[in-house]
Each structure stands twice: as structure tokens, then as C-alpha cells.
Design a protein around this nucleic acid. Structure first.
Lengths: 203, 203
DNA sequence: GGTTTAACTGAACGCTCGTTCGTTTCCAAT
DNA sequence: ATTGGAAACGAACGAGCGTTCAGTTAAACC
């Protein structure tokens, strides 16, 4: 399937994936044809089928790859510290990771209904693991008294929705850089979850 | 175009819109054919063109109608009171309004990229007016000292993303009813925006 | 009961879709 | 120079797409 040496150009497989991701993000999975993807790569449509069994698998593979990358990056974060420190790391990491790959994020959120049931279940399970990681931090914080939350599951979903919302407007080179955005969102998150007494002195 | 008396059944126009909304929400605009919509209504595909000039206009009309309804409902809210009271009204209303029409909300958010440029601009302008209303409340609150926010525009977008996120998991008859959900989210919103001194006594 | 009229049918248009597969190309090893 | 084999081509398949429109139906009015 792969040459020992890519003598003429970039490897075709990754270029197909990149083109598909870009087009799916821009126009939506159902609105993009295999011929459009092929044209973007500079190849005939039939060639795509040497790299993916079909269009659905191409989408599922992109989405699953994204979710696995997200979980790997989460696992690579430094552990330990207070729940507040962990939550700050999670918050900043979420914003930074998502801002760096807007197309994959967009596809992973918007094309869930284009997945066949098996693929949907597999990818939703990965998302669930990510949410669980945040929920665990919130529960730890409630246990130590650093956070005061009526419902950690809802708060998990609320915070992730808020943080992921950055992607709807963030553009590189805009009014604010990522450091500034992280700081603003971290302040919102921190105040929202903090127990009243510790709202200003977060340990 | 319309009969003086709908003697046999429901009027066809609204039924087409309802079927299209349901199918667009479930499968995505591009993945739904005019024949599917027609079949859902119990009519031939050609009949749809007595009610809409084309598929794109059907989508745009559904989205524009939803945004206008949202703005009308916002305008119908009681005015006056402190910024904190206004923000609570906005928060509760947003959750309640969106939870009541999940399909329209889903389509309005997910199918923006299916709109042709003119329709997109018109509908985005309506969304901007809704965001402006929230931003005005936040600015008023900062002016009175009730809120402490580094950036009202970002906070506006962050809060709307958080509140709209309810729609990704809320299902009627689930663990929590709307009153409970409103209360939890209002607590998160209130704490996130409140100036430190007033965090516990919101007037 | 005959006429009007709007709603709806159903066939047809040209086109694009995802996918298959026999053929051609061309690098790499002999 | 020849050969082996992977990569890509490009034509073809049946199906379905959005849209049009001449014709059919049936309720409403005189």
C-alpha cells in the first residue's frame, strides 16, 4: 500500500485525509463528493478507494483520529496538584487544543449525525471519556471544598460547551491572542465553580 | 395559494415546513431529498414547489423564521430591574425557549454552512441582534458594579455557548426538569459574572 | 349540473452521486 | 534492457438528485 520512498510528491494518503477534512468542515460531509476530494488532491475519484473502503469510513476515521488525539493530549497533561490547578490546566488545554485544529473540531461536532450507528457509538464513547475526565476534576474539587456545584455532570457539559464555543469565533490574528482568551475563560470557569469562600483565593 | 377552507386535512404548507425541519435536523440539509420531504407529508415531490421556490429557500425560511421568533420572544420579556435580574430573565428564557424547539435550534446552528451567501448574511445579522441584547445587559451590569468582566463580548459568546449547550443533552422526561436545569445554569452564570463583593447577595 | 380554479400528480429533464474495475503508467529491482 | 508490481487512470454502472410542467382531480361557486 505504501511506497518505500515517496519520490515524486507528498504521500497521497495523508493528502486525501487533509483535503477531506477541509472540505467536510467547509461544506459538510453530505455536500462533499468523492470527486471534489479527489480534485483537491489532484487525483481521479477512483484512486481514493485505494486509501479508504468508502466515504463513510473516511469520515469515521477522521473523527475517531481526532478524538484519540484529544484523549492522548489530555493524558499527556501533568497530573497532580489541587483540583483548581487541574481545572485550570484542563481549561487552558481545551482552548489551546481546539483552537489549533478548528476543522477537525468542527467536523467532530457537526457530523455526528452523518455517522452510521456503529461508528457513532465508537466515537461517542471516546467523547464520553473526555467528559468523564473533567467531571472527575469537578468531583474532586467538591470533595475538597474548593468547588461548590449542585450537579457535576451538568457543570461538566456546561463548561465544555462554553469552552468549545471559542471555536465558533476564534481566528488566528484576531483581537485577542490565545493567552488572553485562556485567561478570560479561566476566570469565568474559576468563578463559576468556586465555593463562595475561596472564590478570590483559589487554594 | 391557500384555500378558504381546509376541508380535508391540515394545510399542506405548514406540514411541509414541519417535515422539512424534522428531516433537516435529523439527517442534515444536504442529506435530505425533496422526495423524502414529500413522502413524509404524503405528497409528490413536485407539489413542494407550490410552497417554496426551491430547497435552499425552504431552509433559509425555516432558519429565518426561527431567529425572528427568538427575537420576538426576547422583546416580549419584561424589561427593567437590575442587570442581575435582567440576566436571570435572559438565562432562564434562553434555556426554556431553546429546549422547546430542539429541531429548529439544531438546524439554525448546524446548517449555517448550507446557506447561500445572501441568506447567510441575513440570518447571521439576526443572531447578532440577539447577542447584542445579552452584551448590553453585561455592560450595564459592569457599569453599575454588579458584574466584573474583562471582556463583555467574549463573555456574551461564552454564556450563549454554555446555555445553548443544554440542547445537546436535554430530553423531555429526563433526570432533571426545566426548572431544575434553569436554576443550575443560572447559578453558574451568576457566579461567573458577579463582581466579587456581590457574588452572594445579587443586588 | 356545469364551470372555474387551485392543488396535486407523475413522468421527464439533465446531472451528479458513490463505487467498481480493466487498463495504463512508471518506478525499482534485476 | 527487462520485468514485477504498486499507483493511478478513466470509463462505466445504476441510482438518485433538484426541478419543471402538461395533465388530472375534486372541491367551490353560479
Amino acid at each position: 500500500m505504501s511506497r518505500t520512498q515517496g519520490s515524486r510528491a507528498e504521500l497521497t494518503g495523508p493528502r486525501i485525509r487533509a483535503a477531506a477534512l477541509r472540505l467536510f468542515a467547509r461544506h459538510g460531509f453530505a455536500a462533499v463528493s468523492m470527486r471534489q476530494i479527489a480534485a483537491e488532491v489532484g487525483v481521479q475519484a477512483g484512486t481514493l478507494y485505494s486509501y479508504t473502503p468508502d466515504k463513510q469510513s473516511l469520515l469515521a476515521s477522521l473523527m475517531e483520529g481526532h478524538m484519540e488525539e484529544l484523549l492522548e493530549a489530555l493524558a499527556a497533561l501533568p497530573a497532580g496538584g489541587t483540583p483548581t490547578e487541574q481545572l485550570e490546566r484542563f481549561t487552558r488545554h481545551h482552548i489551546r487544543f481546539h483552537a489549533a485544529r478548528p476543522e477537525a473540531v468542527f467536523v467532530a461536532y457537526m457530523e455526528l449525525h452523518s455517522l452510521e450507528p456503529d461508528n457513532f457509538a465508537r466515537i461517542e464513547a471516546l467523547r464520553g471519556r473526555y467528559e468523564d475526565a473533567l467531571q472527575q476534576i469537578l468531583e474532586d474539587g467538591c470533595a475538597t471544598g474548593a468547588f461548590a456545584l449542585p450537579d457535576t455532570k451538568l457543570t461538566t457539559l456546561a463548561l465544555i460547551a462554553m469552552l468549545t464555543g471559542v471555536n465558533t469565533w476564534f481566528r488566528e490574528g484576531g483581537r485577542l491572542d490565545l493567552d488572553g482568551i485562556e485567561a478570560i475563560y479561566w476566570q469565568l470557569v474559576q468563578k463559576a465553580v468556586a465555593a463562595p469562600d475561596t472564590a478570590r483565593a483559589p487554594r
